[in-house]
Design a protein around this nucleic acid. Sequence first.
RNA 1: GGAGAGGUGGCAGAGCGGUCUAUUGCACUGGUCUUGAAAACCAGAGUCGGGGUAACCCGACCCAGGGUUCGAAUCCCUGCCUCUCCGCCA
Length: 425
Amino acid sequence: MLDRKYIVDHAEEVKENCARRGAAVDVDRLVEIEELRRAKLQDVQELNRRANEVAKSIGSCKDPTARAERVEEGRRLRDAKDTAQSEHDRLDDEALAIQTLIPNRTHPDAPIGTDDGANREVGRGAAPVPDFAFKPLDHVQLAERHALIDFEAGARIAGHGFYFLKNEAVLLELALQQFAVGLLIQKGFTPVITPDLAYTEILNGVGFIPRGPETQIYSIENSNLNLVATSEITLGGMYSGATLDEDQLPIRFCGLSHCFRTEAGAAGRASRGLYRVHQFTKVEMFAFTTPDQSDAVHEELCAIERELFDRLGIPFRVVDTATGDLGGPAYRKYDLEAWMPGRGERGEWGEVTSTSNCTDYQARRLNIRFRKKAEKGTHFVHTLNGTAVAVSRAMIAILENHQQVDGTILVPDVLRPFVGKDRIG
RNA sequence: GGAGAGGUGGCAGAGCGGUCUAUUGCACUGGUCUUGAAAACCAGAGUCGGGGUAACCCGACCCAGGGUUCGAAUCCCUGCCUCUCCGCCA
């Protein structure tokens, strides 16, 4: 969420930004409502002040007649205040509804464009795109061949989009987590396993919108709990309402959780196999920083993602995400797209990680602040997130890129200690 | 899950419908005193929002949200959390 005062004071700039990011928002209406709201707020405060004054005078008022008059006066003022207050609250709700739809500001270097077609490639991984001397199988075929994944059984017990991992796929899942968490600990991240459920209010703060028709979120009936779509939600929520000290920052967490997504509206779109599933495991990086630190930490998160996939021997490219494809909270976003030889006709790039600098957009809604030494007041922290390993997609990339002509699959060196073998099959 | 107790400022801990602005202690900041320090004494100190060029003024905040009342930290309801006991359980 952007600061309301900022929106009002920079309405033109905000409108341009909305246009670049493809967000249809009535900023003018917000400006208009906000003006009315502020005027109403002053009425409320004035009425409140007078009501307080009257109420206070009653305590020391001994004469019964005068007292009764005062009580009546107080009642009248409080009623007037309540009326003004509810008018104010209605305006505030309307303003908030619009405010919530306004996306974050955008990094000046982010490529401008309406969708992912405008994304700018900014780098490649160390591994070259493999040039197989045979027709490579996709991960569904490979998984079947080696009895790694049971999609049919998954569908039987929970529907399309669920699956059972079996045999070496289980070892790979665990190995990827071990590998990623281990590396992140070395980099100074504090590992945490987070809840897989979170309150609606936390989801909203992080920028997710549960319970709409288009929602990606599974909600628990008769409660305000939701299955998390990423531990970004729980990690961001960890410090909601907190005021941190400047010298604690930056704080780096690496969170491990299951992720649940309804994938509403995504049916039929490149959803074969593990690519688009309703549940997967993810190792997530999350950082709380000062405003000065966030750009550098963003580069750092991206560098870690690159290192992880380089060490897995997976070819990838890095793209700087175009304005129209950033989503609401991100100020800038880099995606890692791994080469997936089994996708499409001759292989395609498929997103495996994503890292965003959300600046103060999430922190404002979550109310996460920090205090500078020897300075009054507080500032909002910046929040950043990045995928270390989304296990399902990483597994696709591993199976498809490391397959051999004889149908076996080489286990990446860095995972061998955890998998306990060099080769599947 | 059942029964009880409780959530107050950085911490400890009063306050149980209106005396002036939420006692008090510790910690904190500034000052006085001192060669310096300690002690003592004096003073100050939170957050968010609104108004004002400004010193400053005002509103809100005693876990959260509702309610009763002219007036709520205090009374009522709901939720969340903590503690104690019981039950159940990997």
